[in-house]
């Protein structure tokens, strides 16, 4: 191959790559503000869900063991803390946000990220639809506001010692999802471990 040809090939490829890079740079700049705003909104939404009593949240406070957020009500009283946790699930790392009141009782949890088996592990984030397909097709039934996933709702009002997964019905423990015991345990472990770490850290301060 002549040197001239190699040069020509290289230059053509360079030109195409440059054009592609320019196009991507422009679109990255255009979408970045929206993506960042959404990430912030998601975080705030998670804090609201896990600590419903709080009206305002502090910035992320760094602790020696675990970072946390402080939640205060309208008049500035401390109503609780929120902190992240994670554990290995069946097919992904599950990350959660946990909210507790100052006494250490869980006020709520929210699964932030998971890639569990669709239809099994993902039941942890599923909200049952309030109406059936046929009702929707005929325009009957209320669409209703999207509720919270029942699996995650179980955690509210529990303390660290009650975080045990059981099969079947239970009043004071965590009921496992049908066919997704590993996911149920992983979520519970993520909550329990981060809660224990946080409480230990609080005692020391």
């Amino acid at each position: 191959m002549k040197e001239g040809t190699i040069l020509k090939l290289g230059l053509t490829l360079t030109a195409i790559c440059l054009a592609a890079a320019a196009a991507l740079a422009v679109s990255y700049r255009m979408t970045k503000p929206t993506i960042d705003a959404r990430a912030r909104a998601d975080k705030l939404e998670a804090l609201r869900v896990v600590l419903p009593a709080a009206a305002k949240f502090s910035d992320r406070q760094s602790g020696p063991e675990i970072d946390y957020y402080e939640g205060r009500d309208g008049s500035g009283n401390l109503v609780g803390y929120a902190f992240p946790g994670e554990a290995k699930g069946y097919s992904s790392t599950i990350s959660v946000m946990v909210g507790v009141d100052p006494e250490g009782t869980i006020t709520g949890i929210k699964i932030l990220e998971q890639k569990e088996t669709p239809g099994l592990g993902t039941q942890a984030v599923d909200v049952p639809a309030s109406r059936t397909f046929w009702e929707a097709l005929l325009g009957r039934g209320e669409k209703g506001p999207a509720g919270r996933p029942p699996f995650q709702e179980q955690f509210a009002g529990k303390t660290a010692s009650q975080l045990q997964v059981v099969r079947g019905k239970s009043e004071d423990k965590i009921e496992a999802l049908t066919g997704a015991t590993i996911t149920s345990r992983a979520v519970t472990d993520a909550v329990k471990e981060s809660l224990q770490t946080f409480l230990k850290q609080q005692k020391r301060i």
């Binding site: 090939l9 490829l13 790559c17 592609a20 679109s27 979408t31 929206t34 993506i35 959404r38």
Partner: peptide
């Protein structure tokens, strides 16, 4: 040029996929 057509196609395709990804994320 014929010799480098495949890398060129891949660059073009990858650019559009990244675009789609950014738009979906946003």
């Amino acid at each position: 040029p014929n010799k480098i057509r495949i890398p060129c196609y891949i660059v073009v395709i990858a650019t559009f996929v990244t675009l789609v990804e950014l738009v979906l994320e946003a």
